[in-house]
Design a protein around this nucleic acid. Structure first.
Length: 271
DNA sequence: AAAAGCCCCTGGATGC
DNA sequence: TGCATCCAGGGGCTTT
């Protein structure tokens, strides 16, 4: 479910409401990707200071330590003042004085991990190799071009890797490459500077636009207020195999790259 | 260092 | 209706 836009939209939907709340209780369901890393009850009494995002991780800063949350493939968060009883696939509850933050995650690829600070070994294992934030000032065109020149792999998979630029998942990688008219199979180091420039802009544009539209709701994504996203209605290629390209009417093609589906227009995105 | 595969897990859609 | 197969928004880990 969650690429950068969905994670950011989720953050925006509860960060202000939970800030300043005090932890009253913690409930764990089935195991997630990693153990919490501390005794759940040890979090009781701490205050939630703020919620930040790094790549596809949410960082919940506490008065002492922080929680790293990841939504995996199927996770979503809810934050409600009156929380109904836990249902199937609700695997983490952080009950506070302002409401309960709940992780619902059927596939359990998600995670909630406690870290003493951002620099500790646990946090660094997850955050240490992340690339730059695409929506921030650090996403520099020259640096981006310089790194791509050293990468031999297909540009789609370089984007998905997350070590060059974070937050671009399977939907937005296909979309950004369509917007920049680049064939996803093109080796990164073979891209012209003009194409890299277009891609740099497209990555920022598509992610920012998706945040504006509340993210993409393919199956059941919703933000922490239960609201769906609408970007999927604007997708140019993702999930549109066999359908007419919205620009030139050529049928959209689907291929496999690294065990993931890639969608592109064979006419608009020439090698 | 970088690339390619392999898993983790559940549920929905499709086909026979 | 039942059962098998495939696919899904991620990414850490191991092996080349």
């Amino acid at each position: 479910m969650p690429e950068l836009p969905e994670v950011e939209v989720t953050r925006l939907s509860f960060a202000d409401r939970i800030a300043g709340a005090q932890v009253l209780a913690v409930r764990m369901g089935k195991p997630l990707r990693w153990p919490l890393g501390c005794a759940p009850e040890s979090l009781v009494g701490r205050t939630v200071l703020q919620v930040r995002r790094r790549g596809k991780y949410l960082l919940v800063d506490l008065s002492d330590g922080l929680l790293l949350l990841h939504l995996g493939m199927s996770g979503s968060l809810s934050f409600e003042s009156q929380q109904p009883p836990a249902r199937t696939h609700d695997h983490f509850d952080l009950t506070t004085t302002r409401g309960t933050l709940r992780l619902h995650d059927p596939r359990r690829f998600g995670a909630v991990v406690f870290a003493v600070d951002e620099g500790d070994a646990v946090a660094q294992k997850l955050l240490g190799k992340l690339g730059v934030e695409p929506l921030g000032d650090q996403f520099d065109l020259k640096v981006f071009a310089q790194i791509l020149k050293k990468r031999k792999g297909p540009i789609k998979q370089v984007l998905l890797g997350g070590d060059v630029v974070v937050g671009v998942g399977n939907i937005y990688a296909s979309e950004a490459l369509f917007l920049s008219a680049i064939r996803p199979t093109t080796r990164a180091q073979r891209l012209s500077h003009a194409r890299i420039t277009r891609l740099h802009t497209a990555v920022r544009d598509v992610l920012a636009r998706a945040v504006e539209k509340g993210g993409s709701t393919l199956r059941d994504f919703s933000n922490a207020q239960g609201e769906s996203g609408y970007f999927q209605l604007e997708a140019m290629v993702y999930g549109r195999e066999g359908m007419a390209c919205k620009v030139c009417a050529t049928p959209i093609q689907s291929i496999r790259q690294g065990q993931r589906s890639t969608f592109f227009c064979p006419s608009c995105q020439r090698p």
